[in-house]
Lab assay of single mutants.
Amino acid sequence: LVRYRTISKIPQITLNFVDLKGDPFLASPTSDREIIAPKIKERTHNVTEKVTQVLSLGADVLPEYKLQAPRIHRWTILHYSPFKAVWDWLILLLVIYTAVFTPYSAAFLLKETEEGPPATECGYACQPLAVVDLIVDIMFIVDILINFRTTYVNANEEVVSHPGRIAVHYFKGWFLIDMVAAIPFDLLIFGSGSEELIGLLKTARLLRLVRVARKLDRYSEYGAAVLFLLMCTFALIAHWLACIWYAIGNMEQPHMDSRIGWLHNLGDQIGKPYNSSGLGGPSIKDKYVTALYFTFSSLTSVGFGNVSPNTNSEKIFSICVMLIGSLMYASIFGNVSAIIQRLYSGTARYHTQMLRVREFIRFHQIPNPLRQRLEEYFQHAWSYTNGIDMNAVLKGFPECLQADICLHLNRSLLQHCKPFRGATKGCLRALAMKFKTTHAPPGDTLVHAGDLLTALYFISRGSIEILRGDVVVAILGKNDIFGEPLNLYARPGKSNGDVRALTYCDLHKIHR
């Protein structure tokens, strides 16, 4: 019993810090008490220290592992850092350059016999395009090294910054494609005289377009951006097909006994025919423009016929181009109408809503002055909100995010209106959640004399007048207030005048 009563005193000691020596009952000389009392004092002292730490809000209350900052290894790049964003855009520009100039170089340097010394005699450094290609190869190699040090988000939505895990993730992902696209074939085969082989191998750079397509997928929600990307894709495919079309004609031209190829026909049409040795002929500019003209006309199913396939190889390629053109029509131009419709969806919704308003007016036989006010209010409210119901949009977000959005939407009023000066951010967040926005066209009466005042109004834009009878008592403008002081009276009061809008007004109100 003594032991039980001794232990039962522990909660009292913990909360009230009572010393055991003052209790005459606990001072009985028993061996059990002498053993338990020192333990009680020690526990009391420890609990006292913990309570003191909690009340003082000291940093040592938290466990040590929670006080440590997340460790980022040296030379690790955050995937959302500004440097990584700028670097990704730079790589994107280099990939676009590669997609345009690599097929052009591979096709127009394929057994090209233009006048001038061969590239091997001039030297590697004197070729501007080769120098640019070398810079692109170096940048792609540097990009691989950067990807080995860039964080990523795993399946659990955690940012991984450990170098080993980053390397394994990159090896399992895009490393092989990036490595093949970054191989400097110019340096590996330079001086061997195989410019045709170098041009063909350099087309491996186009593998990076797969990554670019995935990154550009984030802009699919913007109709104008999608339309622009589709047109660029169409032009890029036409450019690639033009390079292939020229390569076919250029390879067949020296081996044909009869002059029936499209390059021969082009030379005869523009007065620059090929001679018996295969030299001469149109310039590279004429060849490229004509090839691009043929691919565009074939892809769009126009086909004027002034550039036509004559050999079997050219006919087979033309059939493939027609098939590609039909697929592009289905996948690209078939979506253009939907994209344009999405661009004008706001206008369509406006006309639909206006039609419903006019049908309501016609069905209920609203008189002319009231009908005009109804239409003007709808037009003004639509121009202010673009038909978007803010309350319906915010309803799907958590309250903390709703408060931040409301604070942002009402920031101008909260910053410049005098009653809100000096208020804490928590108070402003709470008030912003209570605001209701209303609009009024010129001549609209917001409050009639004798109406119950259940709200306090803040003028965000425009001006109003307060009338008693036919006498203008006051004219209020931006950041002015009218209405009933909230919670100042037990019952809502009545208006002693009319409140009429002089201009288009936007008002925020808080109800009782």
Score class of each variant (00 low, 15 high):
residue 177 I to K: 01
residue 239 H to R: 01
residue 220 S to K: 13
residue 305 G to H: 01
residue 168 V to G: 10
residue 231 M to D: 01
residue 211 R to M: 03
residue 440 A to M: 15
residue 398 P to H: 03
residue 448 H to E: 07
residue 227 L to Q: 03
residue 137 D to S: 05
residue 309 P to D: 01
residue 296 F to V: 13
residue 361 I to C: 06
residue 116 G to W: 04
residue 217 D to K: 10
residue 342 R to V: 10
residue 284 I to M: 11
residue 155 A to H: 13
residue 363 F to Q: 10
residue 134 L to G: 03
residue 341 Q to M: 11
residue 186 D to K: 14
residue 295 T to C: 13
residue 405 I to M: 01
residue 445 T to M: 09
residue 102 T to H: 14
residue 78 L to P: 05
residue 267 G to W: 01
residue 111 K to P: 14
residue 222 Y to G: 05
residue 377 Y to L: 01
residue 163 P to Y: 05
residue 440 A to W: 04
residue 312 N to L: 01
residue 310 N to V: 04
residue 416 H to P: 01
residue 81 S to W: 07
residue 416 H to I: 03
residue 213 A to H: 04
residue 392 A to G: 08
residue 295 T to K: 01
residue 102 T to K: 05
residue 95 V to C: 03
residue 435 F to C: 05
residue 345 S to V: 11
residue 422 G to A: 13
residue 289 V to G: 01
residue 265 N to G: 01
residue 173 G to N: 09
residue 139 M to I: 03
residue 80 Y to I: 11
residue 441 P to A: 12
residue 425 K to I: 06
residue 350 Y to C: 01
residue 326 S to R: 03
residue 223 G to P: 07
residue 193 G to C: 05
residue 156 N to A: 13
residue 266 L to D: 01
residue 353 Q to A: 09
residue 175 F to N: 01
residue 73 H to V: 05
residue 376 E to T: 14
residue 109 L to F: 08
residue 71 R to N: 07
residue 393 V to F: 02
residue 349 R to E: 04
residue 392 A to N: 07
residue 284 I to C: 01
residue 388 I to A: 04
residue 357 V to I: 08
residue 79 H to P: 02
residue 95 V to Y: 01
residue 141 I to A: 09
residue 174 W to Q: 04
residue 287 K to C: 05
residue 185 F to Y: 08
residue 311 T to F: 01
residue 362 R to T: 03
residue 140 F to E: 01
residue 232 C to R: 01
residue 311 T to V: 01
residue 371 R to T: 03
residue 274 Y to H: 01
residue 340 I to N: 01
residue 311 T to D: 01
residue 271 G to L: 01
residue 130 A to V: 05
residue 201 L to Q: 01
residue 67 L to M: 14
residue 64 E to I: 10
residue 305 G to P: 06
residue 304 F to V: 04
residue 167 A to E: 01
residue 370 L to W: 01
residue 107 A to T: 09
residue 390 M to Y: 07
residue 256 M to Y: 04
residue 219 Y to N: 04
residue 195 E to R: 12
residue 416 H to R: 07
residue 283 S to A: 01
residue 186 D to A: 14
residue 195 E to F: 15
residue 106 A to S: 04
residue 167 A to W: 01
residue 301 S to M: 05
residue 210 V to E: 08
residue 273 P to A: 01
residue 253 Q to Y: 06
residue 236 L to I: 05
residue 306 N to Q: 01
residue 179 M to F: 12
residue 340 I to M: 07
residue 427 C to I: 14
residue 331 S to M: 10
residue 443 G to I: 01
residue 332 I to C: 06
residue 154 N to P: 03
residue 243 C to G: 01
residue 331 S to Q: 01
residue 132 V to K: 01
residue 239 H to A: 01
residue 370 L to N: 01
residue 157 E to F: 14
residue 86 V to N: 01
residue 288 Y to I: 01
residue 68 Q to V: 09
residue 266 L to G: 01
residue 80 Y to V: 09
residue 242 A to E: 01
residue 326 S to Y: 05
residue 369 P to W: 03
residue 229 L to G: 05
residue 384 Y to L: 10
residue 348 A to G: 07
residue 328 M to Y: 01
residue 446 L to D: 01
residue 352 T to W: 11
residue 145 L to P: 01
residue 390 M to K: 06
residue 287 K to D: 01
residue 291 A to G: 01
residue 332 I to H: 03
residue 170 Y to I: 01
residue 277 S to A: 06
residue 437 T to S: 08
residue 329 Y to N: 15
residue 135 I to A: 04
residue 419 P to L: 06
residue 252 E to G: 03
residue 282 P to R: 01
residue 355 L to R: 10
residue 272 K to R: 03
residue 171 F to E: 01
residue 91 I to M: 02
residue 72 I to M: 14
residue 276 S to G: 06
residue 248 I to T: 01
residue 400 C to T: 06
residue 447 V to F: 04
residue 173 G to R: 11
residue 371 R to C: 12
residue 301 S to D: 01
residue 217 D to H: 05
residue 373 R to A: 04
residue 235 A to Y: 01
residue 110 L to Y: 05
residue 222 Y to W: 08
residue 83 F to W: 10
residue 423 A to V: 08
residue 234 F to D: 03
residue 420 F to G: 02
residue 312 N to D: 01
residue 142 V to H: 01
residue 142 V to A: 08
residue 418 K to Y: 06
residue 110 L to T: 15
residue 376 E to R: 13
residue 430 A to P: 01
residue 117 P to R: 14
residue 211 R to D: 08
residue 408 H to G: 02
residue 314 E to G: 01
residue 310 N to I: 01
residue 359 E to R: 08
residue 123 G to A: 06
residue 410 N to E: 02
residue 430 A to D: 04
residue 124 Y to R: 03
residue 381 A to K: 10
residue 272 K to D: 01
residue 194 S to V: 15
residue 430 A to H: 15
residue 265 N to D: 12
residue 142 V to P: 02
residue 408 H to C: 03
residue 289 V to P: 01
residue 258 S to Y: 03
residue 159 V to T: 05
residue 427 C to W: 01
residue 327 L to W: 04
residue 270 I to Q: 03
residue 382 W to C: 01
residue 129 L to N: 05
residue 280 G to T: 03
residue 268 D to E: 14
residue 214 R to N: 09
residue 351 H to L: 03
residue 420 F to L: 08
residue 207 L to V: 13
residue 421 R to Y: 06
residue 176 L to V: 12
residue 377 Y to K: 01
residue 154 N to K: 08
residue 249 G to Q: 03
residue 322 M to S: 02
residue 235 A to V: 13
residue 335 N to E: 07
residue 384 Y to A: 11
residue 234 F to I: 01
residue 351 H to I: 03
residue 257 D to G: 14
residue 329 Y to K: 13
residue 337 S to P: 01
residue 109 L to Q: 09
residue 289 V to K: 01
residue 418 K to H: 09
residue 129 L to A: 09
residue 394 L to D: 01
residue 346 G to H: 04
residue 231 M to R: 01
residue 446 L to E: 01
residue 409 L to N: 09
residue 393 V to S: 03
residue 378 F to V: 11
residue 370 L to Q: 01
residue 143 D to G: 01
residue 125 A to C: 01
residue 137 D to I: 01
residue 400 C to F: 03
residue 426 G to A: 07
residue 356 R to G: 08
residue 165 R to I: 04
residue 181 A to L: 01
residue 170 Y to F: 01
residue 232 C to Y: 01
residue 440 A to L: 08
residue 302 V to L: 01
residue 150 T to S: 10
residue 298 S to I: 15
residue 207 L to R: 14
residue 297 S to D: 11
residue 231 M to F: 11
residue 217 D to M: 08
residue 332 I to T: 03
residue 254 P to C: 15
residue 345 S to E: 10
residue 362 R to S: 03
residue 69 A to C: 04
residue 106 A to W: 05
residue 138 I to G: 02
residue 293 Y to W: 05
residue 353 Q to G: 08
residue 415 Q to H: 08
residue 281 G to T: 03
residue 104 Y to C: 01
residue 337 S to C: 04
residue 246 Y to V: 09
residue 286 D to Y: 01
residue 368 N to Y: 04
residue 309 P to F: 01
residue 102 T to N: 01
residue 78 L to F: 13
residue 413 L to E: 01
residue 402 Q to M: 04
residue 221 E to K: 08
residue 438 T to H: 08
residue 379 Q to H: 15
residue 112 E to G: 08
residue 238 A to E: 01
residue 221 E to N: 06
residue 224 A to H: 05
residue 238 A to F: 03
residue 190 F to K: 14
residue 299 L to K: 01
residue 125 A to D: 01
residue 245 W to N: 01
residue 356 R to K: 15
residue 380 H to K: 10
residue 437 T to M: 09
residue 70 P to H: 15
residue 187 L to A: 09
residue 301 S to T: 15
residue 366 I to E: 02
residue 119 A to F: 05
residue 382 W to L: 04
residue 89 W to Y: 03
